[in-house]
Write a protein that binds this DNA or RNA. Structure first.
Lengths: 355, 355
DNA sequence: GTTAGCACTCATTCAAAGAGAGTGCTAACA
DNA sequence: TGTTAGCACTCTCTTTGAATGAGTGCTAAC
């Protein structure tokens, strides 16, 4: 069987590039016209037959052109793909989004998701940042009424989360303030992951505070660290998929929409995709675990805030996706988002904001 | 021109019922078979011609059956429609959802939205409750660092909202605690809507606290009252629309998805629909203001928590929608949601919850 | 006022035919 | 040995035309 020389690679690349562009099976004549290697259609045909034997191309039916196979795409993104440079408009669109003064983390993410989907014409997903390693900076307990208490956790990153918790036993202001001071002295600047059930019992014993009071609060503190909450996935541009010829099939659309509407699943999928690799990662077609995205490709990347918070940012598109552009846009966006986030969480020397 | 006697009404009703069921133009024979009025097809045909003249029916083309016009639907929902009784399964599905112990308001809403869309097979929308008339119960200011402060507002309803605000001037613990006590004494138990810019200036003068410090906090307090925040609309079951034959047209699907993906617009639309009426309200087709739902019908209803919070709950479906079922499900859901919410916000004698 | 009968209309379905794109193979050429 | 021209063949897609069938409107009779 023929092996993979430079010419074959060049031809394969041209075929995939063209197919990504047109969504139509690519014939030998097209290739001759596009990249002039000084070869005739017949030669190209021979090469294409070889490439098909090797598993990189497929023929929808005899007498149609060739279409990339999944391993074809894989080779393409791994070795063949060229770089795409953002146009000035694209760069500006990104910059402008990021330049807007917003003080809510969520708004930045929502906006970024929007721009990302608009720039690429694919579906964009961003997961809100979660703590990777965090410690308690301050804990505040606020009595709402006799049975309800508001717990406010401020992490070392300045991230704030709160929860209203109900207790069976009646709460008195004294009890609450004592609880607050005990927990603060015990757990301030301790990494969340270090807090064990044992240490809790010790604290309970020494301070005489009931476990029933402490437990829900500690549990909440830990929940702040874990990646959780389906509401923390932002998704935009699902409707974009309908613009692609592969989504004229209503059943496919339905499948995609269902997959996308379950935010928990989306979250899990992009986290999984991301987990192996720290740079950009690309999953093609059925490389995506069976959660409804089998005819999509997913490109993801990790953004970081300082060194203890991170989230995932991703692009979901059809398998026949403009990988080079998507990768490029994703890279820029990731960078800008990280930077913007730093400003907002106030860790960097951010300028004061008002209103 | 003929007028609207009981027989015509009966026939119109039968036609619309059948059309809602089958999505096919209804012929005279079908009507004869369905409701036995002891009339022949020919007679029905005459009546149908009359109904068409009156504008209640339309013919897609000569030699097809009849289809309801928008005014036909209007008459139907206003006067003709019979009642639908929920089946035991449906009632149980609802009850079970509501019976689950959940302590987060958002989770209840999210879950309810899901069940509502599943029961009806339409798209369900619920807006998170907003205060209609609220006052401050307690204000807490927590310094995060020199320039950031966490503002926590607890309303008379026990609703808690918070925001992190950045200030140009450096904050000292003394400054913060003074600000907290001044604002608390001044604004506790005062209806939010009563707070004017004038009263603020007076307070600033008397207490010597800078407006720059107070203003963002007060602004946030007011924002708690206003219906705002796009993230506060919960939507589920958009993919359901694809099951209806009117949505085999890809363009229509695209339009619908776009409309649905802009949560702000959805919010506005259901609020608008609701604003006139306190019971159930139905908007048919182009009765919906031009925000992409022109070929949908929207049924909405208001749910209340106590007497100072409320939200909207709605069903979006094709114009050819099973109105009687939708209305019935919506009514039950509204009632149950109101009740559950009361338990959660802790206003009623709710039992203690743990974990 | 109701009904039977009949001619007419129009969407839908199906098969057949034709066009076009592209291949695989063979034989000739450098 | 690699490349190319030529040709028969395959398969999809589009067009066309005819048959089908549901349903109407109108007229005349009951």
């Amino acid at each position: 069987m023929a092996d993979m020389d430079a010419r074959k690679r060049r031809i394969l690349q041209a075929i995939i590039d063209d197919y990504i562009d047109t969504a139509e099976p690519v014939g030998s004549r097209t290739i001759v016209k596009k990249c002039d290697l000084g070869l005739s259609p017949a030669t190209i045909r021979n090469e294409m037959a070889d490439l098909e034997d090797m598993g990189y191309l497929k023929q929808p039916h005899t007498s149609a052109g060739r279409v990339p196979s999944l391993s074809g795409y894989r080779l393409y993104v791994d070795e063949l793909m060229t770089q795409y440079s953002l146009t000035m408009e694209e760069i500006n669109a990104l910059r402008n989004t990021m330049a807007v003064k917003i003080d809510y983390l969520e708004k930045v993410i929502a906006k970024t998701t929007q721009v990302l989907s608009r720039l690429t014409n694919y579906t964009a997903v961003i997961s809100a940042p979660t703590l990777t390693a965090g410690s308690l900076k301050q804990l505040r307990l606020i009595g709402v009424d006799a049975h309800w208490m508001l717990v406010v956790v401020i992490t070392n990153q300045g991230m704030v989360k709160d929860k209203k918790i109900q207790f069976a036993a009646a709460l008195t202001p004294e009890k609450i303030s004592r609880l607050e001071s005990v927990l603060n002295t015990q757990f301030t600047n301790v990494d969340f992951s270090q807090i064990t059930l044992d240490s809790l019992y010790t604290v309970a014993e020494q301070s005489g505070i009931e476990m029933e009071l402490m437990l829900p609060i500690i549990e909440f503190m830990r929940a702040c660290v874990k990646a959780e909450a389906e509401s923390d996935v932002y998704l935009d541009g699902a409707a974009n998929m309908l613009n692609f010829p592969e989504y004229t099939d209503i059943e496919r659309v339905k499948k995609f929409l269902n997959a996308v509407s379950n935010r928990m699943d989306v979250m899990r999928t992009i986290q999984e995709v991301q987990s192996e690799n720290d740079g950009i990662s690309i999953r093609i077609g059925n490389e995506n675990p069976g959660s409804g995205f089998e005819d999509c490709s997913i490109i993801t990347s990790r953004y970081k805030i300082g060194n203890s918070m991170q989230g995932v940012i991703g692009i979901i598109g059809p398998v026949r996706m403009d990988y080079k552009k998507a990768v490029s846009v994703l890279k820029s966006t990731t960078g800008l988002l990280s930077k913007k986030m730093l400003e907002i969480t106030g860790e960097s020397p951010g300028k004061p904001e008002r209103k």
